[in-house]
């Protein structure tokens, strides 16, 4: 299982990449494997406000749907349109092409609650 060292993680299996005052968010390799074949992704609209640990997107397989939670509070400033047309990207490239959205965060302190790669590894 691939858990890149340079990313941060949530207990609900999102990964986070910090880019100045923004974070890029996707689901982990572990999560995509558990969900199995992803057939549909619902993303928030750009400009939507999101709250820490509240649902922000949905990833769906044939027989189930999973809420994706915002790792921190903030505003959606970018979404990955490619996964809307090709949801398999989330399976094939969870950390690169299959990212979901970018949040501009309000409070840097909230980042402290995120897990380091080693801690996430222990979790799964």
């Amino acid at each position: 299982m691939n858990i890149p060292q340079d990313l941060l993680y949530t207990k609900t299996h999102e990964w986070v990449k910090i880019e100045e005052n923004k974070i890029k968010v996707g689901i982990t390799d572990f999560a995509q494997h558990e969900i199995t074949d992803i057939v549909h992704v619902e993303l928030p609209e750009i400009g939507t406000g999101v709250k820490k640990e509240q649902p922000a997107a949905v990833v769906e397989s044939v027989k189930s749907a999973f809420d994706i939670y915002a790792p921190v509070s903030g505003k959606i400033v970018e979404i990955n349109n490619n996964v809307l047309g090709s949801p398999e990207l989330v399976n094939n490239s969870p950390y690169e092409e299959g990212y979901l959205f970018v949040i501009e965060f309000f409070n840097k302190k909230e980042l402290d609650d995120l897990l380091k790669a080693n801690d996430y590894k222990k979790l799964v």
Partner: peptide, 13 residues
């Protein structure tokens, strides 16, 4: 198909 819209999967959503 597109079943993840439906009640038996999504329940209240």
């Amino acid at each position: 198909t597109l079943q993840s819209r439906e009640q038996h999967i999504r329940r209240e959503k």
